[in-house]
Structure formats: structure tokens, C-alpha cells
Amino acid sequence: MTTHQGVRAPDRRLSLHAMLLWTVAAGAAGAVVVAAFSPFSAATAAFSPPLYALLAGAYSFFPFLVRRVLGYPWAATAAGVVAGALSAPLSPIGVLVLVPFVAGGAAYDTVLWAVARIRRGQRTPAWAYAVAAVASALVLLVVSLPLLSPVHQLPFALAAVFAGRVAGQLTASGLAGVAGRRLLRAGTDR
């Protein structure tokens, strides 16, 4: 089974214990990212929603990474649940931080699940991760609509916010791919 182009995954399956540890570790790392960004994230979101949308892609890096390294369905969603639960006390929006983490991870996982069902047993192509990132960007835009001011809900402003979301999510997915390949080559998936 090959999870990334040019990288051979181990022939044995990971234990449930190892998958849980990886998922919780990725979620905890995601919570650290929220803690690092939270002092200025609310001000950035109010000042420039497109810039915030771009920077918020960093929140998706670790859920995307665990999905690429472990390759099990719904890994990004599970890591998002952990990240949201751990970061809720640190976030300006509290428990509501679960919504973007879970929604973004679920959109990413859903696209990858659908591609895997269609391609049955074949390696996940690079374009699938890009499509999954764009799908998560669209879902995150929809989730953020109620929070945008009326000025930022004009078509041009929404297009700019969506472009920021797409750029942020594609960057997170791409960097997760690079990091995932390196981790798999190093044998850290055991």
C-alpha cells in the first residue's frame, strides 16, 4: 500500500494504540497553534478577514498531517475534535472553536474518502489532496459567514475571503504532504 507518491507504507497495519497516540498528538499540536495565534487572531479577523482566512490555514496543518501519515479515514476529523476540545479554553470563541476544526477536517476527509472509494486500492493522487483542501476552504467560508461584518459580505469581499481560505488550506495541505513524506521515510509511522 502506498500512501504518498514514491513512499512505501509499512505492510503491517498500525495498532489502534499507535493511531490514537498520533491523532491525539496532532490534535494537541493543533491546540498549541491556536494558543500561539489567539492573541492576535481576533484583531486580524476584524481588521482583514482575507488575511485571517489565509493565516487560519495553519490551524489545519496538523489534522491534515495526521491524515496523510496514518492514512485512515476520518483522521483529520478526529484530530480536529481533539484540537478543538483542547483549544476551547484558550480560544476567544470558546467551545465554538470545535465547529471550524471538525467541519474543515470532515470536508477534507470526505473528499479523500470519496476518491478512495472510486479508485479502490490505488494510491491517493496529489490532486485529491488539493481538491480536499479547496473543499475544506469552502466549508470554512460557510462556517465563517455569520461572523463576517456586512461590509465583508459583499461579493468582492467574500471572494477575497474565499481566496484567502483556499490559499491557506492549500498551503496547509501541501506542507502536510511534505512533512508526511519525510516522516514516512524516517519510519516514524510505527
Rank of each mutant, 00 (worst) to 15 (best):
S41W: 12
V24Q: 10
P89I: 00
L65D: 03
R12E: 14
P10R: 15
G80S: 01
V34Q: 10
P39W: 04
V24T: 13
G57Q: 08
F61H: 05
S38L: 00
L54N: 08
V24D: 11
S91M: 01
A35H: 02
H17R: 14
L54R: 07
T77C: 08
M19R: 15
P10I: 06
V66R: 04
S87I: 01
A53P: 08
A28S: 12
L54W: 11
F62R: 01
P49R: 10
S91H: 09
L70E: 13
F47S: 13
A43W: 02
A18E: 11
I93W: 05
V81P: 03
S60E: 03
L14H: 14
L20R: 12
R68I: 15
A58Q: 12
A42R: 14
P92T: 08
R67F: 12
F64K: 08
A83M: 08
L65V: 03
A75Q: 13
V95K: 05
G94T: 05
A29N: 03
L21G: 15
F64L: 13
P73C: 02
A58I: 11
G84R: 11
A36Y: 03
M19Q: 15
A85W: 03
A78T: 06
F64G: 08
P92Q: 06
P50M: 06
S91I: 04
S41M: 12
V95A: 15
S48N: 15
V32E: 01
V32G: 01
F40W: 15
A31C: 03
L65Q: 07
M19S: 15
A76H: 04
G30N: 00
A88V: 00
P89Q: 00
A83W: 00
P63K: 02
S87G: 01
A25G: 11
G84H: 09
V97E: 09
A53T: 12
D11F: 05
S38D: 06
L55Y: 07
P39G: 01
V32H: 00
Y72E: 12
V97F: 05
A88M: 03
F37A: 14
A45H: 14
G94R: 05
L51G: 01
L21Y: 06
L98P: 04
A58R: 11
G84S: 09
S91T: 04
A31V: 01
A26R: 10
L86Y: 02
R12I: 03
A79N: 01
F40S: 07
A79I: 05
P89T: 03
T44A: 12
A26L: 02
A28V: 10
V99E: 05
F40A: 14
A28F: 00
V34R: 02
P63R: 01
V34L: 03
G94C: 01
R8T: 13
R12F: 06
F62W: 13
A75F: 12
W22F: 14
V32M: 01
M19G: 13
A36P: 07
F37D: 00
S38E: 11
A28C: 01
M19D: 15
F62H: 06
A56V: 07
I93N: 05
L70H: 08
A56E: 11
M19L: 15
W74I: 07
V82Y: 13
F47L: 13
A46R: 12
R8C: 03
L21H: 07
A88Q: 08
A83I: 03
L14C: 05
A58T: 14
G57T: 12
T44K: 04
F47K: 14
A85F: 04
R67N: 11
Y59F: 15
